[in-house]
Amino acid sequence: MSERIDQRAPSETDSGPASSPGVPAPPPGTRRRPSSRRGETIFRSLTTGSGVLVVAAIAAIGVFLLIQAVPSLLANQADFLTFPSFNTGDPDNLAFGIRDIFLVTMFSSVFALVLAMPIALGVALFLTNYAPRALARPFAYIVDLLAAVPSIIYGLWGILVLAPAILPIAEWLNANLGWIFLFADGNLPVLSGTIFTGGVVLAVMILPIVTAVTREVFAQTPRFQIEAAKALGATRWEVIKMATLPYGRSGYIAGSMLGLGRALGETIAVLIVIRASTSPMGFSLFDGGYTFASLIASAASEFSQPLPTGAYISAGLVLFVLTFIVNALARLIAGGKVNG
């Protein structure tokens, strides 16, 4: 990158007061031609404007969500951060808080991450170090295809096909490890359609992004490090331990953060898979409830009165801030290694 051609426009380098009309007409030859100069200025402004638009879009998301959320937050009768339920039925008596929503969001996303991270690590190592050369690309493509399946289909599959299939696992965990709070009885009458089920579905959904980022960074491991390890007589696994993992660790963590961000914001699959519950969240994976995203989607058809709508928008704002932080951290951790 250091030796890249500078991107200044060629005709930009001598810009100055010379273009003002008071200057005598330059003689022919190498003097500037105003039309090419104008084209350059217009094109440059248009492309810069497109870039600025992206920055503006992010700023606008924050600002507009805030504008819409503030009146409802002011009208809120309950404490926004600690109140466990979201009562917006009576616009004159709003009482909503994000405690349970936050917990369900975090439990499902972190659980998904715990499941996805080791698998993604294994797959990334498999694709970069173990798979036969000729098959590495098609195999990687197959894993990427997981990302092409729409969330709503994961939701349907998750609740109708996967949930019954993993129910025995849930029952076994609940029966044998129920003394651990994570596997204790939840607030749902069944062990299906729980945070546990949702977490497994989310794990499948975030697997491709975690894998893709990790694989990309692993593949960039400098050759000399690999060869240095091989020259010491290292086995394939020892090469990975000596070269690939130390080099790729930050990429793996960054990819996992990106996966976490996806899980936090996943909407429709979670809405379909995790059942709502009338009783509060009790720190078990067998609880049900809403995440930020599924709560908003569940109420979307009732967005008519401004104050209740604003309550949901305030939840959206929290989700926006959460994903912003997670994605910004991912970028910081990755340094220059990760793009996307």
């Binding site: 992206v54 920055v55 879009a57 992010i58 606008a60 998301i61 507009f64 969500l65 504008i67 819409q68 990106l258 961000g261 996806r262 936090l264 914001g265 996943e266 909407t267 930020f292 995203a293 908003i296 989607a297 967005f303 709508t309 949901y312 928008i313 959206g316 989700l319 926006f320 994903t323 912003f324 997670v326 994605n327 910004a328 991912a330 970028r331 996307g340």
Partner: peptide
């Protein structure tokens, strides 16, 4: 940086933003 952030904005948040604005 903002392109990366936008890539991580959940679709429900994008939808809410269009709704709000």
């Amino acid at each position: 940086f903002m392109v990366d952030i936008l890539a991580g904005v959940p679709s429900i948040v994008a939808a809410l933003f269009i709704f709000a604005a």
